[in-house]
């Protein structure tokens, strides 16, 4: 006996809803676990004392008066942290595009320059580069403010790492696209500008987003210049002055964490939208 279409339909629905229920149960479990972890974290910093097996334990107690008084001063560094990241990622994107084109170039000096740049930057520490731009350049008569020294160092550094992303993005564009463009008589420059790069840039937006999120936290290194009032610098300033570094650094950490989560959500949205836009034939 064959099943009717309605029977088959209800069977499919049952399988579907079973699957959905399983997923919902998993999500619920995950969210509950998050809540427990979060409560534990709060508890760990609550300052509550408790007795276990006759021993006296105490959780970490924080100076709430200090926090209430200073959180806003530290919070004001968020804007500078974001500004530093945006400027640096912009510089890094431009440099990595040039670097990626250089790495793919058949013109020896361009290839050599790009390779040299990557090797030099990846071969030295980021912290050294930041301090170098701030402290060493004045000796050569080039005086940069802490902000521009930081942006230059971060941009150059991330640009070198992102070069490989750009190179991969350019190479990922189907060879048929170049051939079609050649066949209608386009030259190499036109092909790059009109056909390959518009498609490659679309591909590299998600990984560049990741780099941006990583960079948000690396901007804290710029605090060593002592003249850029971003998150970490502000928290160190008030923390040291009041012998409350524990509280001050925790506040900065929480802000870094929140910005990262927010930008990760933005990033996931962009990625989803791009994935929907690109349909392979």
């Amino acid at each position: 006996m064959t099943q009717t279409t309605t029977e088959l339909q209800s069977q499919a629905d049952q399988i579907q809803s079973l699957k959905r229920r399983k997923q919902q149960r998993f999500r619920l479990g995950v969210n509950l676990s998050y809540a427990v972890l979060f409560l534990l974290l709060i508890y760990a910093f609550s300052g509550i004392k408790f007795n276990l097996f006759g021993l006296q334990f105490s959780t970490i107690s924080l100076d709430t008066a200090f926090i209430a008084e200073n959180w806003y001063f530290i919070f004001n560094g968020v804007w500078l942290t974001i500004l530093l990241s945006v400027l640096s990622i912009a510089l890094a994107t431009v440099l990595s595009l040039l670097g990626g084109l250089g790495r793919l170039s058949k013109y020896p000096p361009a290839y050599a320059l790009a390779t040299f740049y990557i090797s030099l930057i990846r071969g030295t520490p980021l912290l050294l580069q930041i301090i170098f731009f701030f402290l060493a350049l004045p000796q050569l008569g080039i005086r940069l403010t802490g902000l521009w020294a930081g942006v230059l160092a971060l941009g150059l550094n991330y640009g070198a790492y992102m070069t490989e992303i750009m190179r991969a993005g350019i190479q990922a564009v189907d060879i048929g696209q170049r051939e079609a463009a050649l066949a209608i008589g386009m030259n190499q420059g036109q092909i790059m500008r009109r056909v390959v790069l518009p498609q490659a840039l679309r591909l590299v937006i998600p990984p560049i987003g990741n780099q941006f999120i990583a960079m948000l936290k690396d901007t804290s290194l710029i605090s060593v210049t002592g003249f850029v009032w971003e998150l970490l610098w502000r928290s160190q300033k008030v923390g040291r002055a009041n012998f409350r570094s524990l509280e001050a650094l925790l506040i900065a950490a929480v802000f870094y964490w929140i910005i990262t989560i927010l930008f990760s959500i933005v990033q996931a949205n962009i990625e989803e939208r791009l994935a929907r836009g690109v349909r392979t034939t």
Binding site: D174, G176, Q177, E179, A180, A181, A183, I184, G185, M186, Q190, R194, V195, P198, Q199, R202, V278, T281
Partner: peptide
């Protein structure tokens, strides 16, 4: 003029954009 097995249209351009790309750019 060449026509390929896998079409190789430019996916970021409309049908018209694809057709006028040669005349405009080249």
């Amino acid at each position: 003029g060449m026509v390929f097995q896998s079409f190789n249209l430019f996916p970021h351009m409309t049908a018209l954009g694809n057709v006028i790309e040669g005349p405009v750019t080249v």
